[in-house]
Design a protein around this nucleic acid. Structure first.
Length: 683
DNA sequence: ATTTCATCCCTTTTT
DNA sequence: GGGATGAAAT
């Protein structure tokens, strides 16, 4: 590898790449070329330090980040991406469990359950164990249990759980869930990290094995690690110097998932001699955007001092688009995008970022009505779609007749003549005998089961489980089950296409894999899920602020920046407010050229009202924003007729600054109105 | 008596 | 997307 690329890096980036002699923490601000540093570092380790690709472990949080990292390292090094050990935390844990779990007493047949399946199981258990709980209460309990698991707490840690506010009934419920998991050999997302950690903690020999294997460990988005994940990194890094963590405390937005920025300080304590490198030059955004974002995050107390700067001095000002309601906001945004489409098509596509998914609804309707094309970027993965999960359940049950989770799912989603009543009976029987549900079905109600050709086929398959030909198997079973027909009758074209795509995926996998093991496929689907990216051209992308992390867009509209949504009204504590502010910071720093902050309410977010007014311009209408290419003229307001929500109609005498107007309300006299606090409607 | 289907509700952020 | 309903279909 030539080292020309080193010339293209700034001194800090270069140091982060080249540093090798002690643990390294890279504090990488938004848009500071973090991914570049990580990928170049791994390339450097392999090419210059002669490390084997398989001995460098790269850990990320999302599959997308992992995929991108692999692709870029392959480009840099010319080495097949599959040889690099780049994982999400969950995929890494899964791998360790598969590799080394069996000697530690895990059955070879265990499988992973996702969030939905966990919920279904818990809901069912709660009906017997904690009746009378509302769904919200069950969800809350589930969250608390997951949070406990993130801290490595399991039902036998009764005291510690009770110290965390668990009642003894709740601990009992937790235990029941855990017993169920053991019985059915199903592990949830948190187990994927927690169980390997316990394994490594309890077995020095196993730990040494992994320490020998991974010579160097690189962790991305380190500020989002939870206690289990931190422990995993600490263990896998051993006592060696070969560890680099990259993160930004200003972008820590996952405390509700158990993450804590205290691991930034813990890291320096646990890895003595840690070198800290700060990346503060921003290569993404213009100065006005960065000034705005720096001020936003500057209000936070709990942070390491850091200030991003840029060489790109020139740029349009950050614009505040005021509206009075969600609907009003959606229409104004739609208008704005349409105006841009005519006058400044180079600004498209725009990204609209919001706090919660349900905010997209108003936007979707306005866009559809206003002929603005859009695509919603959801966390929802291809394999999370109902029809795809149903189809996978068919395959799972065909391959493993003891897969009770799959059986339950099919009973719910296919008309098999089995309803809740029969299922309850089967469950009871099955618990007594220890036999799988499918087998019990044929024993207890044979005449009912054998009347369905689909079930009959499953019985045959149970006697002789197939070890190959999975794609064909899936195809024939889907036909036999009548699932396709049901979808066709309901004219669910999209879902039918998804089934086609799934079959194609399985066929592809089967043809390309040297040794296609069905367990590998199922594992990949549960933690490796890919998003199929259609690159159709649209005017706008809609996504949550959380989902926007790590992405960048020419034009960003932050929607619903008001006291209901940002800070989100359910989050009241100081630490929570600071996290909400970080979320706003993340959203703002996604923008390259244009940043529009839209209020979607007549109430101004405290995050905005605490900001100096020179940082943004104020606009009531899309036209005002669309007017100038690079700057927005301060509105000439004199003489304008306006209406104030309290004082009524008035006439603007003069503008004082970007926000404040002197208004003559005739009978009530002249008043200075700060339009960033109380917006005025033009009459 | 049971199952199936339609309809209304809600949903903080996600691996 | 899925839970909770209640009505229609088996």
């Amino acid at each position: 590898m030539s080292t020309d690329w080193l010339q293209e890096m700034n001194p800090e980036q270069r140091e982060a790449v080249l540093h090798f002699d002690s643990p390294l923490m890279v504090v990488a601000g938004a848009g500071s070329g973090k991914t570049r540093v990580i990928t170049h570092k791994i390339a450097y380790l392999v090419k210059e330090k002669q490390l084997n690709p398989g001995s460098v472990l790269g850990v990320t949080f999302t599959n997308k980040a992992a995929a991108e990292m692999k692709a870029r390292i392959e480009q840099l090094t010319g080495i097949d991406a599959r040889r690099f050990m780049i994982f999400t935390f969950h995929a890494l844990g899964l791998r360790i469990l598969r590799e080394s779990g069996q000697e530690k007493g895990f059955s070879p047949n265990w499988s992973v359950i996702d969030d939905n399946e966990q919920r279904r199981i818990m809901d069912r258990l709660a009906q017997e164990c904690l009746p009378g709980l509302t769904r919200d209460q069950r969800d809350q309990l589930r969250r608390r249990i997951n949070l406990a698991k993130m801290n490595s707490l399991y039902p036998n840690n009764t005291d510690l759980l009770e110290a965390r506010g668990f009642s003894s009934e709740e601990v009992g419920f937790f235990r029941r869930y855990h017993d169920f998991q053991v019985r059915e050999q199903v592990w949830d997302f948190e187990d994927l990290v927690s169980l390997p950690v316990k394994m490594l903690q309890g077995d020095p020999q196993l730990l040494r094995f992994y320490n020998d294997r991974f010579q160097y460990v690189v962790v991305d988005e380190f500020q989002d690690t939870n206690p289990n994940q931190y422990e995993m990194i600490r263990l896998l890094s051993g006592q060696r110097h070969g560890v680099t963590v990259v993160g930004d405390d200003d972008q820590a937005i996952y405390s509700w998932r158990g993450a804590s920025i205290r691991f930034l300080t813990d890291f320096e304590r646990d890895f003595p001699g840690t070198r800290v490198v700060k990346l503060e030059q921003n290569y993404r955004s213009t100065k006005p955007i960065l000034d705005f974002a720096n001020h936003v995050i500057g209000m936070n107390r709990e942070r390491r001092r850091k200030s991003m700067w840029t060489e790109r001095e020139q740029g349009p000002p950050v614009c505040l688009l005021h509206s009075v309601s969600k609907q009003d906001e959606a229409e104004k945004i739609a208008d704005l995008i349409r105006l841009w489409k005519e006058k400044f098509p180079e600004r498209l596509p725009v990204a609209i970022l919001y706090r919660i998914n349900s905010q997209s609804l108003a936007l979707e309707t306005a866009f559809t009505r206003g002929a603005v094309s859009f695509r919603i970027i959801k966390g929802q993965r291809f394999f999370d779609r109902k029809e795809v999960r149903d189809a996978m359940a068919v395959l799972r049950l065909a391959v493993n007749s003891a897969d009770n989770m799959a059986f339950r799912r099919l009973v719910d989603s296919l008309p098999l003549g089995i309803g809740p009543r029969s299922l309850a009976q089967l469950e009871k029987e099955s618990e007594h005998t220890g036999q799988p549900l499918l087998k019990t079905l044929f024993r207890v109600m044979p005449q009912k089961a054998r009347s369905k050709p689909f079930l009959l086929r499953l019985e045959q398959l149970a006697a002789d489980s197939p070890r190959s030909g999975y794609a064909d198997l899936l195809h024939s079973l889907l036909k036999l089950s009548g699932y396709r027909n049901v979808l066709r009758q309901r004219e669910e074209e999209e879902r039918l296409l998804n089934l086609d795509e799934l079959e194609e995926f399985v066929r592809d996998w089967e043809e390309n894999e040297t040794d296609p093991q069905i367990a590998d496929l199922l594992d990949r689907i549960s933690v490796d899920a890919f998003n199929r990216d259609r690159n159709d051209s649209v005017d706008a992308f809609l996504l949550t602020m959380h989902n926007a992390k790590g992405l960048e867009f020419k034009t960003v509209i932050a929607a619903g920046v008001n006291p209901t949504y940002l800070p989100f009204f359910l989050r009241k504590g100081l630490a929570e407010w600071e996290e909400e502010r970080r979320l706003f910071y993340v959203a703002s720093t996604r923008a390259i050229h244009h940043l529009i902050v839209s209020t979607g309410s007549d109430r101004l977010s405290p995050f905005l009202s605490s900001l100096p007014s020179h940082l943004y311009r104020f606009a009531h209408s899309p036209e005002e924003i669309s007017a100038g290419r690079d700057s927005l003229p301060v509105r000439e307001a004199s003489g304008e007729e306006v209406e104030h929500p309290i004082f009524g109609k008035g006439r603007v005498e003069k503008r004082i600054d970007a926000h404040r107007l002197l208004v003559d309300f005739s009978d009530r006299g002249k008043k200075v109105i700060d339009t960033s606090i109380v917006p005025l409607n033009p009459t």
